[in-house]
Amino acid sequence: MSEVSVTHEPEQQRYEAHRQGELAGVAQYRLEGDLVVFTHTQVEPAHEGQGIGSTLAQAALDEVREAGERKVRADCAFIASWIDKHPDYADLLA
């Protein structure tokens, strides 16, 4: 399995996961004051079941934590479930 790279695309309000130069998934968000509201995560069908969504969630939440400016609201069911499974990220929730 090849490496997944995640980039932040703030002008599009999303994080993108790429594998072998191909867009494999996105985690979309919007900013609301001091919140990053994750609204939707989608993995392309050809990449499902390969950990792309988890890689996206972790990278996005790590970036929010590192910036230290905002809290998270997980309107996206996938991000909410991921945080539930990784309680060390619960401190990011508003």
Rank of each mutant, 00 (worst) to 15 (best):
A60V: 01
A27D: 14
Q42M: 07
R19E: 13
Y29C: 03
H47F: 15
R19Q: 14
C76M: 05
Q20V: 04
A17Q: 09
R65C: 03
V36Q: 12
V72T: 14
L35R: 13
G53R: 01
L56N: 02
D62P: 08
Y15V: 00
F38G: 01
A77S: 15
R65A: 11
Q42K: 09
Q42R: 15
A77G: 07
L56G: 01
E32C: 10
Q42P: 00
V37Q: 14
E66V: 08
G33Y: 12
F38K: 04
P45F: 03
H18Q: 06
H47K: 02
A60L: 00
A57T: 09
S54H: 02
G53T: 02
V64Y: 09
C76H: 07
H40P: 11
G51D: 03
Y15P: 02
H40N: 14
Q28R: 15
F38W: 01
Y29R: 05
Q42H: 12
E69Y: 08
E22S: 12
F38P: 06
E48A: 00
V64S: 06
R73T: 13
A60Y: 01
L31N: 12
D34H: 13
R30G: 02
S54R: 03
L56P: 01
H40C: 03
I52Y: 07
A24M: 10
A27Y: 12
D75A: 09
V43Q: 07
P45N: 06
A74N: 07
A27E: 15
Y15W: 04
E69W: 12
E22G: 03
A46W: 13
T55I: 02
E22T: 14
Q20H: 15
L35H: 13
E16N: 08
E66Q: 14
R73M: 12
R30Q: 13
Q28D: 13
V26L: 10
T41F: 04
H40Q: 14
L35P: 11
F78K: 05
A46I: 10
G21A: 01
L31A: 02
G21Y: 13
A46V: 11
E44G: 02
G68D: 01
P45I: 03
V26K: 02
A24E: 13
Q58L: 05
I52H: 07
K71M: 03
K71E: 12
V43M: 05
H18A: 01
E32H: 13
T55H: 09
A77F: 12
H18K: 06
Q28H: 13
G21N: 11
Q20W: 09
E66S: 11
E16Y: 04
A67C: 01
G68Y: 07
E63S: 06
A59W: 14
V72E: 10
T39Y: 13
E22L: 08
E16H: 06
Q58D: 08
A74F: 00
V43K: 00
